[in-house]
Every structure is written in C-alpha cells, then in structure tokens.
C-alpha cells in the first residue's frame, strides 16, 4: 500500500498543451502515482499553487501575460520549499542566470525523456 505522504504533486506550467501533455506522459512513466496538475499561464500557476500546494513545479518562460520567470519568483518568494524547474526553449544565458538566482534549475527544451529526466533528478535530489 502506498503511503499517502509519499505521493508527490507536480504543477506543470506551459501555454503549450503539447508541451504539458509530453511532460505529463514522461513523468507518469517514471512516477505513476504522482498527482499532476496543469496551468496554462503564469497567473494560473500562481492560483494553482495557493489551491493545490504542489511539491514540484515546471515553468515555461515565454507565455502570454506574466512570464514564467516572474511567476517563479513570486511562487518561490512565498513558498521557498517548492522545487522549481524553468523549462524553456529560450536558452539565453540570462535566463539560466535568473533561474540560478531564484534557486531554480534551468532545463532546455525540447521536451524529451532526457530533458524531463533532468527535471526529475532535480526534484528528487538533495535540498
């Protein structure tokens, strides 16, 4: 029987339904018992964090409305225990630096088994 305290909740934030779908599929292939929540914008992610209290979050950067970096900053300011991965195609050094400053990990798209494994290693790693 699964101890419910071991069940992890992941919030996937991306305006692309395809990206969300692929991240979800690769994560569930490794952790079939994780609870996956989706948000299609930075604002929706801020609301979801208040309601669903996820352990982990993947965050796209380039989205309509509030961008992912700012959404991540606001979430981590209030909930520093959430492990955050900025999962973006925008691989500029400045975005990688901002992720590091926030205490988040930057993972470059495309969404593949490998890139999702990098995010999972961060979620399950120390700290």
């Amino acid at each position: 029987m699964t101890d419910t305290s071991d069940i992890r909740t992941l919030l996937i934030t991306d305006d692309s339904r395809v990206a969300r779908l692929m991240i979800r599929a690769f994560v569930l292939a490794k952790h079939h018992d994780w609870v996956i929540i989706e948000a299609d914008s930075g604002n929706a992610a801020l609301e979801s964090v208040e309601k669903d209290h996820p352990h982990y979050c993947t965050m796209d950067i380039n989205m309509p409305g509030i961008n992912g970096t700012e959404a991540a900053r606001q979430i981590l300011e209030k909930y520093p225990a959430i492990k955050m991965v900025l999962f973006s195609a925008n691989i500029q050094e400045s975005n990688k630096s901002r992720a590091a400053q926030l205490g988040a990990k930057f993972v470059a798209k495309p969404v593949t088994e490998n890139s999702v494994a990098q995010a999972l290693a961060f979620f399950e790693g120390p700290g």
Binding site: S16, R17, V18, A19, L21, N62, S88, A89, N90, I91, K109, P110, V111
Partner: peptide, 15 residues
C-alpha cells in the same frame, strides 16, 4: 494537436 505541436517545435528551434 497539429497546430500546437508545430508552434512548440518552431518555438524550440527558433529560440
């Protein structure tokens, strides 16, 4: 999914 998938592919490659 055609449209969204191509947007995602384009976004990754162009960025």
């Amino acid at each position: 999914f055609e449209q969204e998938a191509m947007c995602e592919i384009g976004n990754v490659i162009l960025n």
